[in-house]
């Protein structure tokens, strides 16, 4: 399957939420990175048909999604941002309800629910009310509902927001588990969530596509722009204010800094390999030249 975004733009009043976004997606996990308001949710909502773009088209295997109608929806599993679901439904009831909404036949729905609940580790909680589930369990239920109709495209909007580290790791693993032979789009501003699972990342800022590509490629491209240094004199810290500091660690009196920037911050600063967080900071961080 191939999804092609062609010149997608969306404007709210005078501000572009998304500007001439073009990208081609094939099977695999795609991380959409960006700060809050970068245009991630707008992109997903346009893709899902919740909002209409001002211009541009989306093609799936060469067919305009507008011409696909509800057939298109049955190919997609979607988990929106911060959905709470219905508190007085049990896990099992909710999934049955989602089967009805997705037009999945009763028998097939039951079979799929029985398959999915153990996968998302909610098998023993199937009779639990949703109101009694933790945030992580709710998100696992969310991905289970998204997976109900064997979708070929899985769209997850900020799926790990508010989860504790253990749940985030569990959720990441789930995404990888479900990524086989399908397209997974994960929009997030939490870089580590996609660093280890995404095949490619798309970095958005102010509605513009800033960077795209495989993680190893774009991190390699940043070689020579990530620096490590130890600061003995605390007074020099203020000077570092003009650089993008991606990490700061105190070790006794010494401060270990990791700096992202085009120029060497100090003569004794050493070049180090970039990670995805450095890339994100490089493209989406505050402009220190202002």
């Amino acid at each position: 399957m191939k999804i092609e975004f062609k010149n997608i733009s969306k404007r709210y009043k005078n501000k572009y939420a998304l500007k001439e976004f073009s990208f081609v997606i094939e099977n695999g996990v795609y991380g959409i990175l960006g700060t809050n308001g970068a245009g991630k949710t707008t992109l997903l909502n346009i893709f899902m048909g919740i909002i209409k773009s001002d211009s541009g088209i989306i093609l799936i295997d060469g067919v305009d999604v507008k011409k696909m109608g509800t057939d298109f929806l049955s190919q997609i599993g979607y988990l929106p941002q911060s959905t709470q679901f219905y508190k007085n439904f049990t896990v099992h009831e909710f999934l049955k309800y989602m089967c009805v909404l997705k037009g999945i036949a009763k028998e097939e729905g039951h079979r799929r629910i029985d398959e999915l609940l153990p996968l998302v580790n909610l098998d023993h909680d199937r009779q639990k009310k949703i109101g009694a589930l933790s945030g992580g369990m709710k998100q696992r239920l969310g991905i289970a509902q998204a997976m109900l109709g064997y979708p070929s495209i899985l769209v997850l909007d900020e799926p790990t927001a508010g989860l504790d580290p253990q749940e985030r790791i569990r959720f990441r693993n789930l995404i990888s588990k479900f990524a086989e032979n399908r397209i997974v789009l994960v929009a997030t501003h939490i870089v580590p969530d996609i660093e280890f699972i995404a095949n490619e990342v798309i970095i958005l800022k102010d509605g513009l596509l800033l960077k795209q590509g495989r993680i190893d490629t774009i991190t390699k491209e940043l070689y020579g722009k990530v620096w490590s240094m130890v600061l003995d004199d605390q007074h020099l810290l203020q000077e570092m204010d003009r650089y993008q500091v991606s990490n700061m660690m105190r070790d006794g009196d010494a401060l270990h800094l990791r700096i992202v920037g085009d120029e060497r911050p100090a003569a004794y600063a050493e070049n180090v390999d970039a990670n995805l967080e450095d890339v994100f900071l490089y493209y989406c961080g505050e402009d220190k030249n202002d």
Binding site: N45, M48, G49, I50, T70, L73, S74, I76, Y78, L79, P80, Q81, S82, T83, Q84, F85, Y86, K87, M98, V100, L101, K102, G103
Partner: peptide, 14 residues
């Protein structure tokens, strides 16, 4: 309140 509105819109029978 359950933030379900968006999800419903993307479902076949939503």
């Amino acid at each position: 309140e359950a933030e379900m509105a968006n999800l419903l819109l993307t479902l076949k029978n939503g």
